[in-house]
Amino acid sequence: MGKLDEVDVAILGYLQENGKRSYTEIAKMLNVSEGTVRTRINKMLKDGVFEFIIHMDPNMIGLNVQVIIGISTKLGQQETIANWLNTFQEVRFVGAFSGRYDLLIQAYFKNNDDLVHFVNKELATMDGILSVDVNIELKQYKDSFSYIVKKD
């Protein structure tokens, strides 16, 4: 997809505010046709600009332990380990970073016992992991997937 124009960004902003907002409502707010909104949304979805997801509160569904784990890997093993980590349902995010750790992951567990099992029985068995640094979230101040700044 080419560069997003002002209409595309405005559509994304309205969907960001309320993902259930109708195409007709967005069209009226932008003074364009409903077909224009539908076509642009479909194109942005096809091109991977965004996706519709359900954002849940982990605590409300019983995932009470949220962690960020820094992982140091053997040289040449980073991608293999990242792909392996992707297979765990508990792992929400895996990323390669510059800095102290080769990989950072975000994971959610029902309780501390499940976290300990993951670290000592899963991570410990993977050849190529040199060390892990487990950081348990104590309090959350922000959890957002909003990237479009609304203009008033």
Rank of each mutant, 00 (worst) to 15 (best):
G2V: 05
K3F: 07
L4I: 08
L4R: 09
D5E: 05
E6W: 03
D8M: 00
A10I: 01
A10D: 08
A10E: 11
I11F: 08
G13V: 08
Y14A: 04
Y14E: 10
L15T: 07
L15E: 01
Q16N: 02
E17H: 05
N18E: 15
R21K: 14
S22L: 07
Y23L: 08
E25D: 14
I26G: 04
A27T: 11
A27Q: 08
A27H: 06
K28F: 03
M29S: 14
L30E: 06
L30P: 06
N31V: 06
S33W: 10
E34C: 01
V37R: 04
R38Q: 12
T39L: 12
T39S: 13
R40Y: 00
I41Q: 08
I41L: 12
L45H: 05
K46T: 05
D47E: 15
D47Q: 10
G48C: 04
V49T: 14
V49A: 01
F50N: 09
F52K: 11
F52G: 00
I54E: 15
H55I: 03
M56P: 03
D57F: 00
P58G: 08
P58A: 08
P58T: 10
N59K: 14
M60D: 13
I61N: 03
G62A: 05
G62S: 04
N64V: 00
V65M: 03
I68L: 12
I68A: 11
I68P: 00
I69G: 12
I71G: 04
I71M: 01
S72V: 13
T73K: 06
L75M: 04
L75K: 10
Q78L: 03
T80P: 01
T80M: 10
I81Q: 12
I81E: 13
N83K: 15
N83H: 14
W84F: 11
W84H: 09
N86P: 00
F88L: 11
F88K: 15
Q89D: 10
Q89W: 03
E90H: 06
V91K: 14
R92V: 03
V94L: 14
G95H: 02
A96D: 05
A96W: 06
R100Y: 04
R100M: 08
L103A: 08
L103R: 10
I105K: 06
Q106F: 05
A107D: 07
A107G: 02
F109I: 12
F109Y: 09
K110G: 08
K110Y: 09
D113C: 01
D113S: 13
L115M: 09
H117P: 08
H117R: 11
F118G: 01
F118W: 15
F118H: 13
N120T: 15
E122S: 13
L123A: 10
L123K: 11
A124P: 03
A124K: 15
M126V: 13
M126D: 00
M126H: 12
I129C: 02
L130H: 05
V132E: 07
V134F: 02
N135R: 15
N135M: 09
I136N: 06
I136K: 13
Q140D: 02
Y141F: 02
K142S: 04
K142V: 02
D143A: 12
D143M: 00
F145H: 04
F145T: 05
F145A: 00
Y147C: 02
Y147W: 09
I148K: 01
K150Y: 01
K150S: 07
D152L: 05
D152Q: 06
